[in-house]
Amino acid sequence: MALINVPAREIHCKIVYYGPGMCGKTTNLQYIHSQVSGEHKGNLLSIATETERTLFFDFLPIDIGKVRGFQTRFHLYTVPGQILYERTRIAVLNGADGVVFVADSQRDKLEENVRSLRELAVNITKQNKKFQEFPVVLQYNKQDMPNALPVQVLDRYLNSLHWQRFEAVAPQGKGVFDTLKAISKLVISKL
């Protein structure tokens, strides 16, 4: 649930990057952090294991600046993707205003994507929210891999709700900001 603080004239929104392990959620945040200018971003906070896998979450506050007198902040989070951490994902998802579902486009990852998306639907529903109406944007990451599935195939298995979706190669930044723009606008439209 977004928070509007009237006297401080501030708006806070929470966006969570969700998806299976190693799909590129943290890479999305790292790229955003590397590109957004200093006055608009806070530190990128990562709670990771010794092998750089996300253990709890990554957190990046982005300050859009003043819009019509309201200071607007987006708080970007990632969840840990590994199956082991389902309960942690529920914890991070708590109070989210929108989700970016990052899918790994590689053929051998399709089943993991489908499972992760199903889990997301269950977890959103558990928060008493209707999944069909919840703001979600899809990102088909790793489109540069030789075994990447075409978008039409990914759509068939992952996009039955016809969300906006973007092809991406996160380490190079391809599709990263398009995805962020789409989810930010969607969240703002639901304020």
Binding site: M1, L3, V6
Partner: peptide, 15 residues
């Protein structure tokens, strides 16, 4: 859906 609407905290309540 009420879950999707924002929580607006007015001036008086913040003080």
């Amino acid at each position: 859906d009420p879950q999707l609407t924002s929580l607006i905290v007015p001036t008086e309540e913040v003080s």
